[in-house]
Each structure stands twice: as structure tokens, then as C-alpha cells.
Amino acid sequence: MFVKVYQYHIQQDKVKEYFEIQQKSSEIYRKYITSKTTYLNSKADPTKWLEISRYENEEEYDKSMKLVNEEAEIQDLFKRFQSLLVSEKREIIEEDFIQKPGL
């Protein structure tokens, strides 16, 4: 399983809008790829979020993302998402993982 992990900081008063954007983005993604996403909010820093998305494999992810990124609405949603980031912590950290079978 291919896993994407994103870390970013959302303004505390923008969390409702953040989830509205995530919901609309998920609808677009579902047209092209099956995924499962988990959102984690830090207890120590309420602006800090982790977004963990699982995909069947990296090849399908890459192929599908090309199609997702051609959607005009996804570009608008990403701009809206960026406007929710904490101004002094605008960085979005993105990492790729491979999920290994557990015990």
C-alpha cells in the first residue's frame, strides 16, 4: 500500500472551512482513485494537522493524480486550502511511505 503523509498548520478559526474543502476535494479524488484518508490534529499544537492517505499502489496514485490535477475545481480548492494555513507556518510537508504488513 502506498501512503502519502502531509503536515501543515491550519488557523484554528478555519477548521470548519478546512473540512468543507477536504470533503469537496475527496469527491473529485473518488472519481479517479480509491483511497482512505485520516486527519489527525495535534494535542500539543491545535493548529498542527497530519493528513494520512492510503492508496492501493504508487503507480495507480501517479496515474490518477494526473487526472485529478486537470480538474479546474481542484486547483481552486487548493488555493482556498492555502489561504487557511497559519501565516508564519505556510509550509506543507509531504512524505511518501510504503505500508508494510504488520504482525
Rank of each mutant, 00 (worst) to 15 (best):
L40Y: 12
R90E: 14
M65E: 14
E88D: 01
L84S: 00
V86M: 06
Y39G: 09
S64R: 07
E94Y: 00
E59A: 10
V86N: 02
R30L: 13
E73W: 03
D76C: 07
K63M: 09
A44V: 13
T47H: 12
Y39L: 13
Y39C: 09
T38D: 14
Q22N: 00
Y6G: 10
M65W: 15
K31Y: 09
E71R: 01
A44M: 13
N69H: 12
Y39H: 15
E91Y: 04
Y29E: 05
S87Y: 01
E91K: 07
E17D: 05
K14G: 11
S26K: 10
Y6P: 05
Y55L: 05
I28K: 00
K48W: 02
D76W: 02
I28W: 02
I33N: 00
I21K: 06
E73A: 09
R30H: 13
K16Y: 10
E71P: 00
Y6T: 04
K24F: 01
E88R: 04
M1W: 04
K36N: 07
E71Y: 02
I33R: 01
L40T: 11
L85S: 02
D13Q: 06
I52Q: 07
N57D: 06
E27I: 11
E88S: 06
S25H: 03
L77G: 06
I93V: 15
G102E: 05
K36R: 04
E58C: 05
S35I: 02
W49A: 12
E59G: 06
E95V: 09
S53C: 08
H9P: 10
Y8H: 08
V5K: 07
V3T: 05
K16S: 13
K4C: 06
Q82R: 15
D45C: 09
V5A: 03
D45I: 10
S87A: 08
R30W: 09
D96V: 09
N57W: 09
K89F: 02
E94W: 00
W49K: 10
D13T: 04
S25C: 10
V3C: 07
T47R: 10
Q82M: 08
T34W: 08
Y29F: 15
P101N: 03
E60W: 12
